[in-house]
Design a binder for these strands. Structure first.
Lengths: 216, 216
DNA sequence: ATCAAAAAATTAACACTGTTAATATTTTTA
DNA sequence: TAAAAATATTAACAGTGTTAATTTTTTGAT
């Protein structure tokens, strides 16, 4: 038993070594360029060794995706102390956007790419998107509390949460895909696209504020 | 002169033949799988011939991206007849979403992938994203008219337009990347993710309606 | 300590990918 | 008809993910 534990622990260590090498190459040159062969060379093993620990490349992508969610969840966890739910909702949005701008590669892996998602329905282990579920439920919970304070009255909580997520994700995703930059340069004569993004977010928050039931 | 015209016209014909083959393979098996070699085989030429007409694969991607915008612009053009600007705004959103759901591959090429966008700053010809600019300006124009009718008072038009775009794009993008499906199954116990998307859109529209200045 | 069994890692290979240089073919022009 | 220009091809480079077969290493029992 003890021996088996040690064995599986060593196996986990190797998995982590591979993942760290993968992460290094991933943040340096992007997902596509972080090839199995490069990862193997980084830690001094043959390419096929990788397959002894990870099913395929999307398996590694999913593991990195999970690491990204660990970071995002940590960032969010410090927001539970924000008592006012609407302030918390705004903070969630700002934190989400900051994360996307600071770690665009990770954001892409977590919320844009299909590859890590394919791993979910294909693989045996986990059947649901646990990471996403947790983050989304924090948003739902916050919106529920907002509703109790008079915001979003008469609106479905799930739909409101989904819509709020879509708005910030849309902004981040357009930023990362450089579509925002292209429109910013030409149509809005505004080079600072981060500012553009932030202003759009503030406009959205302003709209949300107007849903507040004030006649009471 | 006439001869040169004919020559360049023939060249355009070949370009179109290549593009049609590329489009066929693209809609059938996706962008990644639509390889240069397959495109060449489809029209019975050698792979290198493709490079005599298109600089690289992202050049083809951009051409398809442009074709997609031609369709989207046609869809939008029939909305200019909608006189009420807020009704038109809603119609723009619905049309955009329908397009994304009906042609997810094209949507990905037009609004998600970086590849066709890279073509813009790299290549010589066009320096700006003309397609995107036109569609965005239609949105800006409509929102300006909405503002004159009392909507979005005190909000920046550009920011409002960007935010509206981001919201529908976010929904479409989460749908296409299957993230919406994964959250829908687990958190919202709702399999019909198209309905989920539509409901979120309606919730957003409801929020927009609440920005209307009624005390007059 | 030795030797067989199990585990781990490796080499070689398959079937692809985008892309380019050098070469051959076809078409056009004089 | 011959030279020039345009067009297309073959061969090759440098990669990619992935698998089967083989070798090396480690482990556990005698």
């Amino acid at each position: 038993m003890k021996a088996e534990d040690k064995k599986s622990k060593r196996k986990e260590d190797v998995k982590k070594t591979i993942l760290n090498a993968a992460k290094k190459l991933f943040v340096e040159e992007g997902y596509q360029s972080a090839s199995i062969r490069k990862i193997a060379a980084e830690i001094g093993v043959s390419p096929t060794t990788i397959y002894l620990y990870y099913k395929d490349k999307s398996d590694i992508a999913y593991a990195l995706h999970q690491e990204g969610f660990l970071v995002l969840k940590t960032l969010f966890s410090s927001l539970v102390s924000v008592e006012d739910p609407f302030e918390r909702l705004k903070a969630i949005g700002r934190t989400y956007i900051r994360f996307a701008l600071e770690s665009p590669d990770f954001y892409e892996l977590m919320f844009i790419m299909k590859d890590p998602m394919d791993h979910l329905d294909a693989d045996s282990g986990e059947e649901c998107w646990e990471e996403g579920k947790q983050v989304f439920e924090f948003l739902v919970f916050t919106i529920e509390e907002c509703q109790q304070k008079g915001y979003f009255v008469g609106s479905d909580v799930s739909s409101t949460a989904l819509q709020a997520w879509a708005t910030v994700h849309g902004l981040c995703s357009l930023f990362i895909s450089t579509h925002l930059q292209k429109v910013g340069e030409e149509c809005l004569s505004q080079e600072d696209t981060e500012l553009l993004l932030e202003t759009a977010f503030k406009t959205y928050v302003h709209f949300l504020e107007q849903t507040k039931n004030n006649h009471k």
